[in-house]
């Protein structure tokens, strides 16, 4: 079947089968390889994107379900001039990533959180990241980065 999506503001289309996952379509049909696949049980969140403004795991959604939808991926998170967006910049400033594999999902999850809750507490951030696994950072600097991206004082974070 033919699928059309708006991805990061641009209309894109391609061929898909019933079983084609949104993540597969993004990576293989559209060449947007920033969305990563880290598990097959919908746990790790490396594949997190936004569909119609809502955070979803693109490996646990058929692309047919997203036909006609507005999809945002990590490739669309930078500013229009190419500079890092606020969340991306905070991740770099606070060393919120190491190997980079979980990072696209973390940034997309963080963006979704901050949209609903512009000044989340540390506990709220950790709760929101329940479905995003990072093996490198111990989450410390990810939490810091999200605090900073929300304009909150990072030195106020416990243990700093």
């Amino acid at each position: 079947m033919k699928i059309s999506l708006t991805v990061n503001g641009k209309t894109m289309s391609g061929e898909a089968e019933g079983r084609t996952l949104l993540s597969t379509f993004l990576r293989e049909e559209l060449g947007l390889t920033g969305t990563h696949i880290g598990c097959d049980t919908s746990q790790c969140g490396a594949c997190t994107v936004h569909v119609n403004g809502k955070q979803v795991k693109s490996c646990t959604m058929f692309v047919a379900e997203a036909d006609g939808a507005d999809v945002s991926t990590i490739e669309g998170m930078a500013n229009t001039d190419g500079s890092l967006g606020v969340i991306q910049q905070a991740f770099q400033d606070h060393h919120g990533l190491q190997c980079g594999f979980c990072t696209p999902g973390m940034v997309m999850a963080a963006a979704s959180l901050l949209e609903k809750n512009p000044k989340p507490s540390e506990a709220e951030i950790r709760h929101h990241l329940e479905g995003n696994i990072c093996r490198c950072t111990g989450y410390h600097n990810i939490v810091k980065a999200i605090m900073a991206a929300s304009g909150q004082e990072v030195p106020a974070v416990a243990a700093e």
């Binding site: 920033g34 490739e75 998170m77 930078a78 890092l84 991306q88 990533l97 980079g100 594999f101």
Partner: peptide
């Protein structure tokens, strides 16, 4: 980290 830019923009 200079490697962060590509990881944060999906260009790794």
């Amino acid at each position: 980290r200079r490697e962060d830019v590509r990881f944060l923009t999906g260009k790794g």
